[in-house]
Every structure is written in structure tokens, then in C-alpha cells.
């Protein structure tokens, strides 16, 4: 999946990496949204996106991720607050703001009778750029759509349609790309392609904001993560820090004989006894280099503690939400 030629990537990636750009590329302040139904979908969101970063918005269904994205892109009218895109107000200076943004929506909404080629060229001009067949060809080739360019969109599979939506979003060479659940209902291969594409775009200096339900996806891709819960942004943190704080894992020994207490030889690990001493549980940090597991298993064996089974469990996104929300209350 090559989106741009390498020379271009190399040229553009240097400033992007240096990227501690002072001004945020998106500045959201006090943003609220109450839908006509009276439902408060967003409650006072403050968020700054840095130029060139990959930002993942995590949150359960109905948290408000799509609403937030839709406001920045101009599809939903905010109830209050301001959004600046590269310094341009999204309402007063909407042309300059929107010209910088590409959006891949969550739903697969495409025309049916248009060809791939026509629809992608349409997108470019709609965003005020003059036709550029070479760029469109590069985008289509990068997304493995070139062979399908003359096909009507309705004849494509779901995964291909999603690629078409990405191609449309990239047609006008946006500086900021929103991907609303790019990997929902997508097979492993396309998912890998998508990640590769995101990295390539980032190397070109494109800022990327994606939403996802999968914590491993955020872990894999993002520089920073924001967690949205019931219309509030409850955490915004560097990925590595967040994973340290929240990405807990557990290793459970199912013992043959119940233990009365944790043997002192094992005090170097954070161990708890559960289920009346029948389970020995070790909680550790998922992102740690040194988990001490091999050593622990050896010591347990040396101490002659017999176990029937070993089980590991990673804290799910749900657990993280629960812990975040209960921390706040």
C-alpha cells in the first residue's frame, strides 16, 4: 500500500517528526451539543489536537464520538463552544477550516450508480481543488482500487466501498483526516492495510483522528488517546502513559490445594488469594517490559504449589471505563 512516493514521504516527514508545533491544529473549547430531542450528546468538551499526531478517540456506543467529529467537520451544528481548525473558526471561517479536513464517515454511505473514478474526482472538486488525475491515480493505487476504477460503486464489496470512502476523503489532499471507526466490520487484511495507510499519511505530516472500540487498535496506532464517556472527555493522555496506568493484566493460578496465605517467598509480586485460597492472582501492568512472570512460575513450582491451570486476562476497554468513571465519582 503505497500512497505517496518515498522521496515525498522522506521530505515531508522530517518537520512532522519534529512536530512539537506550538499551535494545536484543532482547538476545541467548551463544546456542547444537545440534540433537538433534548439529549445532551456532548457536555463541555475541551480538546487540543497536535499537528501531525495520531489521536484515538475511544468510547462505548453512544458516547458522543461521531457527534464530536461531525461538529468539527460541519455536519452537525454545535450548541455551544468553539472549534478552531488551524486557527480558522469552523463557523465564521468555514471554507478555510473545511478545506483542510478529510472525513471517512462511520456508515458506508456511497452513491450507487457512479463509478469509483467519477466519485473520487467529484470529491476533489467539491473541496475546491482543480482536477488532478495523477493524484487521484496515486490515491486509488494506494488503496488497491485502481483496477476497480471503472466499476459502479454498487458492484463493490463492503470492504471496497470503505476504501472508496477513504479515497474520497484523500482526494483533496487534506491536512487532517478523520476516520470514524475505520476498522469496524473490516477483515484482517484491510485492517492491516488501513493501519499501514495511516502510518504513511502520518509520515507525510497528516494529522489523524480516529475513533475505535478496540483498545488494541488505539494501542497499536495512536500517539495520544482520548476517552469519551457519556458526552464527556474523561481522559486525554499519551498512549504510553495511559497504558501504564490502565492497561492492567492478570495472571491467575488455579491451585490444586487451597492456600491459607501468600507464601513470603512470593512477596516480590503483587499477589492476592481468591476463591477461598483456590486461586492465586497476579496483577501486572500490560505495557511493562519486565512482568516477572517466568520467574514467578518457576518460584511457584519450586515451592511445590501445584496448579491445574493458568489463565491470563487483559483488562478490557469496559474495565477501563468502569475504573475511569468510578475514579471520577
Amino acid at each position: 500500500m503505497t500512497y505517496a512516493n518515498t522521496a515525498e514521504v522522506r521530505a515531508a516527514s522530517a518537520p512532522a517528526r519534529a512536530g512539537a508545533d506550538a499551535r494545536p491544529v484543532i482547538a476545541i473549547a467548551g463544546l456542547t451539543k444537545t440534540y433537538a430531542s433534548g439529549f445532551p450528546a456532548l457536555k463541555k468538551i475541551d480538546l487540543e489536537i497536535r499537528k501531525g499526531e495520531i489521536f484515538a478517540l475511544l468510547g462505548p456506543n453512544g458516547a458522543g464520538k461521531t457527534t464530536l467529529i461531525s461538529i468539527v467537520c460541519g455536519i452537525v451544528t454545535p450548541s455551544g463552544g468553539t472549534v478552531l481548525v488551524d486557527g480558522h473558526d469552523i463557523i465564521r471561517d468555514y471554507r478555510a477550516a473545511r478545506a483542510k479536513i478529510g472525513l471517512v464517515p462511520q456508515e458506508l454511505t456511497t452513491d450507487m450508480f457512479e463509478t469509483v473514478w467519477a466519485t473520487v474526482n467529484f470529491s476533489r472538486r467539491l473541496f475546491g481543488r482543480s482536477p488532478d488525475p495523477t493524484h487521484i491515480e496515486r490515491v486509488l493505487r494506494g488503496l488497491s482500487l485502481w483496477e476497480k476504477r471503472k466499476n459502479k460503486i454498487m458492484t463493490l464489496s463492503g470492504g471496497m466501498k470503505r476504501r472508496v470512502l477513504i479515497a474520497k476523503a484523500l482526494a483533496h489532499e487534506p491536512e487532517i483526516l478523520f476516520l470514524d471507526e475505520p476498522t469496524a466490520g473490516v477483515d484482517v487484511e484491510l485492517r492491516r492495510d488501513m493501519w499501514a495507510l495511516v502510518r504513511e499519511l502520518r509520515a507525510k505530516g497528516v494529522t489523524i483522528i480516529l475513533t475505535t472500540h478496540y483498545i488494541d487498535e488505539a494501542e497499536e496506532m495512536a500517539d495520544r488517546i482520548g476517552v469519551v464517556h457519556k458526552g464527556e472527555l474523561i481522559v486525554v493522555e499519551e498512549k504510553t502513559k495511559l497504558m501504564k496506568q490502565l492497561g492492567k493484566k492478570q495472571l491467575t493460578f488455579h491451585l490444586q490445594e487451597p492456600l491459607a496465605s501468600v507464601p513470603p517467598e512470593l512477596s516480590g509480586w503483587r499477589l492476592v488469594l481468591k476463591d477461598g485460597g483456590r486461586e492465586l492472582e497476579y496483577t501486572f501492568n500490560g505495557s511493562e517490559e519486565e512482568t516477572g512472570i517466568p520467574e514467578l512460575v518457576r518460584r511457584v513450582g519450586e515451592l511445590g504449589i501445584g496448579f491445574k491451570d493458568l489463565e491470563t486476562r487483559q483488562s478490557s476497554l469496559e474495565d477501563i471505563f468502569v475504573s475511569l468513571v468510578s475514579d471520577r465519582r
Binding site: 467537520c73 460541519g74 455536519i75 468555514y94 471554507r95 478555510a96 477550516a97 473545511r98 478545506a99 479536513i101 472525513l103 464517515p105 456508515e107 454511505t109 456511497t110 452513491d111 470529491s123 467539491l126 473541496f127 475546491g128 474520497k168
Partner: peptide, 10 residues
Amino acid sequence: GTIYEILSAP
């Protein structure tokens, strides 16, 4: 739903 693109365009 393709109106999203028109609404998000400059």
C-alpha cells in the same frame, strides 16, 4: 446519507 460530503465541504 451521502449529503455528509456536501455538508462537510468548503
